[in-house]
């Protein structure tokens, strides 16, 4: 017996089971792809926000000035700030702290500014599980209306160093 040479034209129409497999894989890929933008709206976990480029030092100064202006107390050395309803809210992420502690009113819409003055951090509002990245040099602005009263934790969910696990802030809604 001799070894047959390979067929010159090996391209053949897809047959039966392979068609079903490809169709199923394609359908699964499309579903999981479009679930990303759909869940953005239905899941209410990763909010739509405006993004602007900022200077890190300038943002830090702006947060400090705003916190000084609306400070109403202190919690474990961190200022508690209560801005006027419907106003600007500033949140600063830095190693290893969320600054300041925010005190907001339920039912009021605030314009929340979030940025970092040093590294990439992850904003995670618990237990609501709202999450997004906080990148230095970029200011994120989102419109937030607290609907539940209580105390909420702000965790850092992007590893930022040795104190990452201690980076816990607080949001108070009354």
């Amino acid at each position: 017996m001799t070894i047959h040479p390979p067929e010159r034209i090996w391209w053949k129409p897809i047959s039966g089971a392979e068609r079903v497999y490809i169709a199923a894989a394609l359908l699964f890929s499309l579903i999981t792809f479009f679930l990303m933008p759909i869940w953005h709206f239905l899941g209410a976990q990763n909010p739509t926000m405006q993004t602007y480029r900022v200077d890190k030092a300038e943002y830090l100064q702006r947060v400090m000035a705003w916190a000084d202006r609306y400070k109403v107390g202190e919690l474990a050395g961190v200022p508690v700030v209560e801005p006027p309803p419907g106003g600007e809210v500033y949140l600063l992420a830095r190693t290893f702290q969320w600054f300041p502690v925010l005190k907001l009113r339920a039912g009021q819409t605030y314009r929340v500014h979030v940025s970092s003055s040093d590294l990439v951090h992850g904003f995670s509002l618990q237990p609501l599980n709202m999450n997004f990245m906080v990148v230095p040099g970029y200011e994120y602005i989102l419109y937030v209306t607290p609907t539940q009263k209580g105390e909420f934790g702000i965790l850092c969910n992007e590893f930022c160093g040795l104190g990452h696990h201690l980076m816990v802030g607080k949001l108070i809604v009354d």
Binding site: T2, R8, W11
Partner: peptide, 18 residues
């Protein structure tokens, strides 16, 4: 023994194969 099939050199190679 079955004869070895002779490829037809005039067949166009499908784009997918190319």
């Amino acid at each position: 023994m079955t004869p070895t099939p002779v490829p037809d050199r005039t067949d166009r190679v499908p784009f997918g194969q190319t």
